[in-house]
Design a protein around this nucleic acid. Structure first.
Length: 271
DNA sequence: AACTTTGACAACCGCCTACCG
DNA sequence: ACGGTAGGCGGTTGTCAAAGT
């Protein structure tokens, strides 16, 4: 269903928040609580969209937000979780107390992905061609994308479209690291997906919510790999004094993913 | 000193799902 | 069942300060 752009309002202010606006929002949330952001914005006299208020509160004004540099432990944990979860920043943030998904995403995009690239550069000689970053690319064009779409579940119609229990890996075709590693489009054995180099399964179920746009179904002999994860040395680490107050649903999902990928042992300390 | 480039990060945008009437 | 809204999420952009030339 097509949706109109929400919160389109000529009167709405955009751009950086002033300290006065921050104060207004903080006071109002303290009194009335979170939620109903649009009405909250109106009642507080803020010329901001509900979304903008929510974002500002969750990312900057909310109590307990940790600011400043990431510690080495946090960095390691992000690398490890990213390897497990891909770009699921909200899930990753759930494991780093005081850090927001936006902050982690920014940190990854500006710092960590470069480090990972460097690591891969140092170790690329030991990588299979399919797992080196050079083989990871965006779809070059809409046409190319459509070509894959046309071959959605190649030669496998009767086995196709096996959705499962809502497992959502959150990848999509705009994920820079996703590729279909096939020259011959009938050969999907080398299907490559970011961040899960060790993904080996005889029957991988991909849910409708995977946002692949063009890929749904069971794939035999799928190997999942990606430039973000290859050769990252991941030591077992835990944050010092880590508050383990983790959302049980997130916890379950982590377990589910690790189990599906058959990498529970590697991530045991996180689960 | 002036200009350009780069890095960091706050904020926005568009899409999605859940929920409600 | 359907349509509209709110909230959530990830990708992307805009902005500004620092670094480089």
């Amino acid at each position: 269903m097509a949706r109109r752009a929400c919160c389109v309002n000529e009167r709405e202010k955009k751009g950086a928040w002033s300290s006065e606006e921050d104060e207004l929002l903080t006071q109002f949330v303290k009194i009335h609580g979170e939620g109903k952001w649009r009405t909250l914005a109106e009642k507080a006299g803020l010329r901001r969209s509900g979304k903008s208020c929510r974002l500002r509160w969750l990312n900057y004004l909310r109590p307990g937000i940790k600011r400043g540099d990431f510690s080495w432990d946090e960095e390691e944990l992000i690398l490890k979780l990213h390897r497990l979860l891909g770009n699921r920043w909200a899930l990753i943030a759930g494991r780093l107390p005081g850090r927001t998904d936006n902050e982690i995403k920014n940190y990854w995009n500006t710092i960590l992905c470069k480090k990972v690239d460097q690591l891969q550069g140092q170790t690329s000689s030991g990588l299979s061609p399919s797992s080196s970053s050079s083989t990871i690319r965006k779809f070059e064009s809409e046409e190319e994308n459509n070509n894959h779409e046309d071959n959605n579940i190649p030669g496998n119609e009767e086995n196709n479209v096996q959705t499962n229990a809502g497992i959502d890996y959150g990848f999509n075709t705009s994920d820079f690291s996703m590729q279909i590693g096939v020259d011959d489009q009938d050969n999907y054995d080398s299907l490559m997906i970011s961040s899960m180099e060790v993904f080996k399964s005889n029957e991988v179920m991909i849910s409708d919510t995977m946002n692949f746009d063009s890929f749904h179904g069971n794939y035999n002999g799928v190997i999942i790999g990606g430039n973000n994860s290859a050769c990252i040395p991941v030591s077992n680490c835990k944050l010092e004094n880590e508050d383990q107050n983790v959302d049980p649903l997130q916890d379950m999902e982590l377990r589910k993913i690790a189990s599906l990928l058959d990498i529970e042992n590697e991530f045991r300390d996180l689960l």
